[in-house]
Computed example of a mutant assay.
Amino acid sequence: MLRPEYPIETARLTLRPFAETDFDALHAYQKLPEVARYLYEGPREPAETAEALERRIARTSLEKAGDVLVLAVVLRETGELLGEVNLCWLSESNRQGEFGFVFNPAFHGNGYAGEAAVEMLRLGFDGLGLHRIIGRCEARNTASARLMARLGLRREAHFVQNEFVKGEWNDEVVFAMLATEWADARP
């Protein structure tokens, strides 16, 4: 079980649970085709963002396998919502998890996603005691793949046309890190 103490602070960021007041900033990036391009859903209408926000507000801890923790990533200096990071507890018996990240493109290229993603790895390995954490992305999403490699995850698989998403077959790449690798590479 993992119930983090909030807020989680990094050098430049605050990670915290989502709140109703995040709607405008969340919708600002969820409505963008370039953000939805590599996600399962398309650009969101306001009502869809409202539903997504309600789900995010409720995901503040990991009580059992299958739960997902989703945190808002805020630039501490300005209070702006930059994006989100998540950690899913895949298996209790195998101590497996998966992490992910989605950021507003207006804030790309500043290292914010990496800084926030490190905290999700820390929560998974140090907080939940996971043995292995994976990250997955659509194979054409080279920016996400590069970020996972920079974080020290190894590329383990490239699945060819394994998912039919938005009317087309997509390839998927899978990266992974073990707890022993985290101990050696921990920032």
Rank of each mutant, 00 (worst) to 15 (best):
A185G: 08
G129T: 14
L69M: 05
E51A: 15
Y40K: 09
R55S: 06
V70S: 00
D24F: 05
F159V: 12
H27Q: 08
F103C: 04
A183Y: 04
F101Q: 11
A113Q: 09
A183Q: 14
W169R: 13
E54V: 07
P7M: 01
M1A: 11
R140C: 07
E45N: 00
R136F: 11
R59E: 00
E48K: 06
R76I: 06
F103K: 04
F107R: 06
E168A: 15
E98C: 12
A52K: 09
V165A: 13
L15P: 06
F18N: 04
V85G: 02
E119G: 05
V73F: 02
A19T: 08
Y6T: 13
T180N: 10
N104Q: 12
T78W: 04
E20Y: 02
T49M: 02
D22G: 09
V165Q: 13
L75R: 09
A113P: 03
D22K: 07
D22E: 03
A149L: 15
L62W: 06
D126I: 08
L147W: 12
M120Y: 11
E9L: 14
A50R: 11
T142Q: 14
G66H: 02
L123S: 05
A28Y: 07
A58C: 02
L121M: 15
Y40Q: 04
T49P: 00
T78I: 05
E84N: 07
L81N: 03
Y38T: 06
T14Y: 01
R136E: 15
P33M: 08
A145Q: 07
T21R: 14
K31P: 00
A176H: 09
G109V: 03
M177D: 12
N170P: 05
D171A: 12
L123P: 13
T78R: 07
G109P: 04
A50F: 01
R76G: 02
V35E: 07
L151C: 06
A58N: 01
A106I: 02
A185H: 10
E156L: 11
T14L: 13
F23K: 02
M148N: 12
G97W: 05
G111E: 09
R150E: 12
E84D: 10
P187A: 05
F164W: 15
T180W: 01
A139K: 12
V70T: 13
A19P: 03
A183E: 15
E181R: 10
L87W: 03
V73M: 02
L153P: 04
M120F: 11
P17V: 03
P43C: 06
T49G: 03
E41D: 04
H158C: 11
L123I: 13
L53D: 01
G97R: 13
P46R: 05
R186I: 11
A72D: 01
P105M: 08
A145E: 13
I8V: 15
E80H: 07
N162K: 11
F107M: 10
E80A: 11
G109T: 00
D22M: 02
L71M: 07
E48F: 02
A143F: 06
A36K: 05
T10E: 10
V68P: 00
E48I: 07
L69I: 00
L26D: 01
E63W: 00
L26P: 04
V35S: 03
G135D: 05
E41P: 00
H108P: 03
G79P: 09
E98S: 14
V68S: 04
L153Y: 09
N141F: 12
L123M: 14
F23Y: 07
